[in-house]
Every structure is written in structure tokens, then in C-alpha cells.
């Protein structure tokens, strides 16, 4: 089957700055993919290239098997909801009406439900909306468009916790009813972690991690206790990060723990803590040029 997205050797340069370098991956459908990475890692650039809103300097990108750039057939099958999206001088209901004409799978009922849920007044000029409300308008359009490829760039920027929870719930409910290919870039990694099938981590324009989300859980563990005991448990394993406070040491080790490791840890009175996806993405970026992450990439 043709993947929803395929990128090969993708590069994007702005003068001296390389925003994307040799990015290669494929995403099938249905799938919810998290595009993670720090500010300036290249997430938005990648999403804009996928959406045909920007040129790649080199490499190729295919969406549903076709070049997205200026390709109306493909562009109608996808939507990119940008962070801080700007709208022409319109009212909320005009923006919604315009979107309803553009997207063939548009669900007017869902749009109405979401406008109500986010308390967006249809008659209000978009210019008068708060940052959070403007974000909510983007999410409403993004979900109601029900495009086969739905790209959200920082969908939760400026949203409060209640509104974010609402978005996650609506996203899951609509995805369950209408499975499709959804990519979302986010800083709020741990909040979104359980929504994801797949995780892509970008760092300074490079793809440093590409793995099924479920495989990543438990591939790193943080171990805390007396320095000597910690050393005993982590002996022969790859460790990423160590810090010491007095006689206490915390080390982050790569690789899964089995029952015997847990028993030993218990015996040595070590505290084991799960490394969250947020931390894991950080380590992937920090250590990607070394082989230490092999265990994570191929669990």
C-alpha cells in the first residue's frame, strides 16, 4: 500500500542555515504520529513541506504517492493547522464556512459541536479572539475537515488544560470513528504520549528517532540509590546521564529491565523510575550521534 507520507533525503536550507538535513521516513495510515523536538528543530518546516506550502531544497516528499506542491488533488486530501495561524479579516463563522467548501469530508455537525465546546462565538471577528480561542478555531477546522492526512503544528499552543483535554478526547473519538493519518507536533510530549502510535524526533534538522510509541516505553530507566549499588545494577549497560548528590547517584540506563533486575534493584534498595517520552526525546537528541540508542531504536 502507498504510505500516506514518504520523505527521502529531505533537506531545507535558508542561506547558511540547514533547517532539515537528510530526513527520511514513511508514515502509513491509519496512524497518529507525534513529531517531537525542541524549538527550531525543524518540525514546522517539515510540516509545511508536507503540506506543499514550502519547497524542499533537496530530496523528495510524497503524500499519498504524489508530490504535494501545487497538486490540488492531494492538497484537498490534507489539512495543515498551523500554530498561530493567521486568518484574513473574517468572522469565526466565515472561516468555518470557507473551510467547509474546501474539504470534501467536512463534518458540519462536528464543527458545530466543537465551536460550542470551545465557546467560540460564531459572529466574532477572528481578530478579536484571544490566542487560545484562535488556536481552538484551528483545532475545530482541523478536526471537522476530517482530511485523510491531518497535520497539526503545536495544536495546543496557548490552550488551557481543560481545552487541551477536550482536544485530546475529541481527537481520539473522531480518529476512532474515522481512522486516518494524523501528525501532530508538540512540546507537551508527556500529555500527548499515550495518543501516539508512532514517534518521530527531530533535532537540529535531523531525524534522530523514529519508533513505534509502544516500543519506547520501558527502554530507558532512571536508577537512584547509593552510588555503589547503582553501579552494581548498571554494570555492563549503557548509561546516558549520571548525577550525584552526596552519596546518592541517579543514572539513566538504556535497555529493558527483567524481573531479576527488579529483584536486584529491590535488594539494593534502588529506586527505579520510568523515563518519560519527553525525557527520552531529549536523550535521543543529545546522544543521537553515538551508538548508545541502538537498544531504543531496535527494541
Amino acid at each position: 500500500m502507498t504510505p500516506a507520507i514518504s520523505a527521502a533525503g529531505l533537506e531545507r536550507r535558508y542561506r547558511d542555515h540547514r533547517a532539515l538535513a537528510d530526513v527520511t521516513f514513511e508514515v502509513g495510515t491509519p496512524c497518529i504520529t507525534g513529531l517531537l523536538g525542541r524549538n527550531g528543530a525543524g518540525k514546522s518546516t517539515l510540516l509545511r513541506i508536507l503540506a506543499g506550502q514550502e519547497f524542499a531544497t533537496a530530496g523528495r516528499v510524497r503524500v499519498f504517492g504524489a508530490e504535494p506542491l501545487e497538486n490540488d488533488t492531494v492538497l484537498r486530501r490534507m489539512i495543515l493547522v498551523r500554530d498561530n495561524q493567521t486568518y484574513p479579516d473574517l468572522r469565526v463563522r466565515h472561516a468555518v464556512a470557507a473551510a467547509s467548501l474546501l474539504y470534501p469530508n467536512w463534518d458540519a455537525d462536528l464543527a458545530g459541536t466543537l465551536l460550542d465546546a470551545y465557546e467560540l462565538p460564531p459572529a466574532r471577528p477572528i481578530k478579536k479572539l484571544s490566542r487560545g480561542m484562535r488556536t481552538a478555531l484551528g483545532l475545530t477546522i482541523g478536526l471537522a475537515a476530517r482530511a485523510e492526512l491531518t497535520l497539526f503544528d503545536e495544536p495546543c499552543a496557548g490552550l488551557d488544560g481543560v481545552a487541551r483535554a477536550l482536544f485530546y478526547d475529541q481527537l481520539l473519538a473522531d480518529y476512532a470513528a474515522h481512522p486516518r493519518c494524523i501528525v501532530l507536533s508538540t512540546h507537551l510530549i508527556d500529555e500527548a504520549a499515550e495518543l501516539l502510535d508512532r514517534v518521530l524526533v527531530l533535532d537540529r534538522g535531523r531525524l534522530v528517532l523514529d519508533a513505534p510509541a509502544d516500543d519506547l516505553r520501558g527502554t530507558m530507566t532512571s536508577v537512584t540509590g547509593q552510588a555503589g549499588s547503582v553501579e552494581r545494577l548498571i554494570a555492563g549497560r549503557t548509561t546516558l546521564n549520571r548525577c550525584t548528590l552526596g552519596t546518592q547517584t541517579t543514572a539513566v540506563m538504556v535497555g529493558r529491565l527483567d524481573d531479576r533486575d527488579r529483584e536486584l534493584a529491590d535488594h539494593l534498595r534502588l529506586r527505579l523510575e520510568r523515563v518519560t517520552l519527553q525525557q527520552l526525546a531529549g536523550y535521543a537528541a543529545e546522544y543521537h550521534d553515538r551508538t548508545v540508542l541502538t537498544a531504543v531504536r531496535t527494541p
Binding site: 470513528a177 502510535d197 510509541a213
Partner: peptide
């Protein structure tokens, strides 16, 4: 159902189905 589980625990439907 997997969709009910997905909504309840707020996890990916594939995870719920699994």
C-alpha cells in the same frame, strides 16, 4: 470496546485494541 477503552484511558485506539 476498544473505542470505549481508548476514550476512557485517553490512549490510542490501536493500544486499546491490543
Amino acid at each position: 470496546s476498544s473505542n470505549e477503552i481508548s476514550a476512557f484511558y485517553r490512549v490510542n485506539p490501536a493500544t486499546a485494541a491490543r
